[in-house]
Each structure stands twice: as C-alpha cells, then as structure tokens.
C-alpha cells in the first residue's frame, strides 16, 4: 500500500485551479521534496493530504483511507504560518493529549529545542504568549515541528517548516528527522531547492501539474 495516492485529483479555489487531474503515488517511507515558486499550490496540496480540504474530483487515499474527515489521523503537519496556542510549550506540543515526558523531550531534541529549553527558568512550562508573540519566529516554528514529531504519525507533512531557521539549524532538524523518522513518509514543501538535500524524490509544481526533477 502506498502512503499517499492521488488518482485524477482536481482542486480549485473559487477562481483559481491548483491541481488539474493529478495522479501520483508516494510509497511508504519515501522522503519527498515539493518545490515551486510561492503561490503555485504547495500548501494547498499538503492541506488536501491532511484532509483540511477535500478534492473537487478524483480520489485521494492516505494509507488506504479515502474519507477526508479521517485523513488527518494518519498525518502530522507543520502548518505555515506556524500557529501556537496561548499556552505553555508543553501544551502546545501535546495539544492536550497525554504523552510520556520522554516522548515530548525526544521531539524537542529532534526539533533542536533542547538547548534553548534548558536555558528557560520554566522549561517546558514556559508560557508562549498570544500567538507565540513572546518567542522568535524560529522558536515558534521549532515548537510546531516538535508538535508534529510528538504525534508519531506514519506520515509527516512539512510546509516551509524550516523557513524561519538558519541553514545549519534547518539542516540539523532535517538530519534529526532522518534518523527519527526511519520508515516514515515525509513530504516537505519549500520554495528553496537547497533545503531538500538528501530527499529521495523532488517534485516540482508547474501549472497545476507535478513534474519529477532528477535530484
């Protein structure tokens, strides 16, 4: 079974077609980079996979599941822009679910948060402020990455997830993911091809269609 399968999927906003009769299969464990200029539809495609939007026509299966309402159960997604709730870092990572401490800490470690967290007097219980306005953009983004990792879904969708991080930190996050996400499927969208080093396949979005570019 493929992790993600598009079969003749079309999707458009009111007056803009984003996907045109797209057929695509992403096998389990693959690491897919999705590139294209901003506005080409990368975020839309990821939101379709996560079940936030439903295709206008065609079928979209995520691990065999085709019911839009249930797709999100198989995925963890880092949304763009990163959204934090006005709560503690811990609550932002667990989203109210019971989680063992080690799982939270491992997610923080992979998201390159550990060093910074150790310097905080309240650690994981630090309040992030409204929309995370007490943090830097990179800190907010890394918390959102930690949230996605802690969910331990078989599929991880990242929308410009390292855009606010400097290149070494971004690379460190991706490196940590590589070892942590063995056997899991990762789809990472970015407008910056340089951020996709080490990916199995790179798909480029052009005029509502996806083209594979040799990596």
């Amino acid at each position: 079974m493929n992790a993600i399968e598009f079969h003749g999927v079309s999707f458009s906003y009111r007056d803009e077609t984003i996907l045109r009769d797209t057929t695509l299969a992403i096998p389990q464990g693959a690491r897919i980079g999705l590139v294209g200029p901003s506005g080409c539809g990368k975020s839309t495609l990821l939101k379709l996979v996560a079940g936030l939007y439903a295709p206008d026509s065609g079928t979209l299966a995520v691990l065999g599941e085709t019911d839009t309402e249930r797709l999100h159960r198989h995925v963890a997604m880092v949304l763009q822009p990163p959204l934090l709730f006005p709560a503690s870092i811990r609550d932002n990572i667990t989203c109210g679910h019971d989680m063992p401490e080690e799982r939270i800490l491992a997610a923080c470690e992979a998201a390159q948060l550990s060093g910074w967290l150790r310097g905080l007097p309240d650690g994981l219980d630090t309040y992030v402020g409204e929309r995370g306005n007490r943090l830097s953009g990179g800190q907010s983004q890394r918390i959102c990455i930690a949230r996605a990792i802690a969910r331990q879904s078989p599929i991880l969708l990242m929308d410009e997830a390292t855009s606010a991080l400097d290149v070494p930190t971004g690379a460190a996050v991706m490196g940590a993911l590589r070892s942590l996400m063995k056997g899991k499927t990762v789809v990472s969208a970015t407008h910056d091809l340089a951020r996709l080093e080490g990916f199995d396949r790179i798909l480029q979005f052009r005029e509502g269609r996806l083209h594979e570019i040799p990596s």
Binding site: A50, L52, H72, R73, V75, A76, M77, L79, L83, F85, A87, D91, C95, G96, H97, R147, R151
Partner: peptide
C-alpha cells in the same frame, strides 16, 4: 487555531482550555 486543532484532534481540549 481551528485547523491545527483539527489536525491534532485537539478540539475538545481547545474548548475546555
């Protein structure tokens, strides 16, 4: 936070919190 809550099955938590 609606979309995030939906993705992470956090709607009930959000309403309570």
């Amino acid at each position: 936070g609606g979309p995030t809550a939906r993705l992470y099955d956090a709607s009930e938590w959000l309403i309570h919190r």
